[in-house]
Write a protein that binds this DNA or RNA. Sequence first.
DNA 1: AAGATTTATGCACTCGATTACATTTATATA
DNA 2: TATATAAATGTAATCGAGTGCATAAATCTT
Lengths: 328, 328
Amino acid sequence: MAATVKDVAKHAGVSTATVSRVINDDPRISEGTREKVLKSIEELDYKINSIARSLKTNKTYTIGFICPELANNFFMSVAKGVEDEIRKQGYSVIVCNSNESIEEEKERFRLLTEKCVDGMIVIPASNEGSHFNLFKESRIPVVLVDRLVEGFQADAVLVDNINGCYSAVEYLINKGHRRIGFIGGDMRLTSARERYEGYTRALADYCIPIEDCIIKFGDFHAQSGYEMMKQLMHGENPPEYVFISNYFMHIGATKYLMEKNSQLNHKVSIASFDDMELTSILGFCDVIVDQPISEIGYKAAELLMERMNGTDSIFPQIVRFKTNLKIK
Amino acid sequence: MAATVKDVAKHAGVSTATVSRVINDDPRISEGTREKVLKSIEELDYKINSIARSLKTNKTYTIGFICPELANNFFMSVAKGVEDEIRKQGYSVIVCNSNESIEEEKERFRLLTEKCVDGMIVIPASNEGSHFNLFKESRIPVVLVDRLVEGFQADAVLVDNINGCYSAVEYLINKGHRRIGFIGGDMRLTSARERYEGYTRALADYCIPIEDCIIKFGDFHAQSGYEMMKQLMHGENPPEYVFISNYFMHIGATKYLMEKNSQLNHKVSIASFDDMELTSILGFCDVIVDQPISEIGYKAAELLMERMNGTDSIFPQIVRFKTNLKIK
DNA sequence: AAGATTTATGCACTCGATTACATTTATATA
DNA sequence: TATATAAATGTAATCGAGTGCATAAATCTT
């Protein structure tokens, strides 16, 4: 049905090689034939078949993006940054959902390999990454985002979680607070670990004892934020401030506090990660560690482009963005 | 580098045709050769090259998803539903951002055509759709989601916006409210128009006069929700209830009310569309029109699959999901 | 004007897999 | 046992575009 180079060639009275050269802006084509061919392309409404082209050139101009969840603002903001950057170079993005499962992550990886993507950007489901060997073997460039994977060396774009969290806790300490609780994420994720590290380090530096009873660990989801805040508030001596390790748990925690606010005879405030659209209306929070989410996506795309263009150093590049402390 | 059918064929001592048949589960292959081939595939770590396959079969097992924005929970929840459903059949999804621009929408469409996607799911940027002729010509199956396009007949998955909005307004009327304001979306979108229609229809059916001064139109973004609520509250006689046409404007409006709450000598409540994770903590809202977002994605995928498999009727199918009124 | 260069174009193979058709081998039938 | 039939495999063309090499045409040299 659709016109091919052959049709165009016949129509223009030239060979397919010439048509191909016109399409690819080969300079050694005379102005006359170029126009003739372009006219035929126009008239036949010829559109290139990138499948055929890819087969020959071994380039698909497609990258894969694997993340643990699609309906997640953080991940999708990264994806947006990636898409934005990468399409400028004519690439497009196949988006895959690993569902926070290592198995599915592996499975998506296989799929993308079969589809011959030129590169991948992965937000790992876990730091457990034995299956990441597959990446190495495949020789497909990979850039990790937000989290690292044990035993797998690759380019990565992260934020300085430790100092981000540290600065928030330090700020609270300087404001005179001593009893600062913590709600952490899944400790199998580097980001969760680093944030916890920032918390403990700040306390240690200011000689404040670490009280396990005001430290809880959730899983970065709203429901667990709700639960953990509940547990904290039901403790013997609840903290006056709670640092919450991500946006979604922050939402859950706020939900709990809103529901139970009148019944609680204890005032609590929140410091948290991520300044999303909604953060400003989450009423208990006045200290925010903001990370440059779009930039993360841009940078990941940029690193990947470098690898795909072969201008790579042997050494993996780890880019860490600084966070920004916002006080309401 | 990577092994091809040829390599496998040589290694197993058979022809490439036989290898291909094994890969594609052709039943008329003897158990013996099948095992031999599978063993070679294993040993050579052969992976199929779907580019080559697609060229021959004219199927890419890839669909396109074009939406006006990536970092948008509603769109991405639809995308999630789509991905979920479609990957069961071995498809994957190229996600494109039209940036709410008709031009970019067109441009993405061209890209996806070149990439030979088997179908597309589109959340249109506008009801203006002269460029949708391209779809017709291309003969690539398309399913529209959430919004229709003028003059373009295609399968679509929508919700019953009119009755959804109607039921909420009716509920408020039955509770004794008479002065119900309205914040609408961009009227170039069918969804915005239908919701407004539901509002006016309910008022008319209950013989309540429509007061233009308590009706504002934004653009479905948070910022405009903020602005419009501000305008309403600064009006001479602000309404007691406001129906807000979508989640993001709801957020913006709430933000305004939270900031100015103490200074307003007028109490206002909100009814709104969409029950997202955060809706429950948006403090002014107690009436919600909930739409089955994931289902929308599933259904769109399903319709598209039907078209792609050619089991299509000539007539476009329009599926409209009922909404569900939730009272807090 | 004949040969050397440069420029423009075409021929034909290739990428990796699928498949119609041909051929071989095994099995059933008379 | 010869023949018909079914099952298993191979041969070779094909999908649509790109490209090394060959060739033709145009331009330059001397």
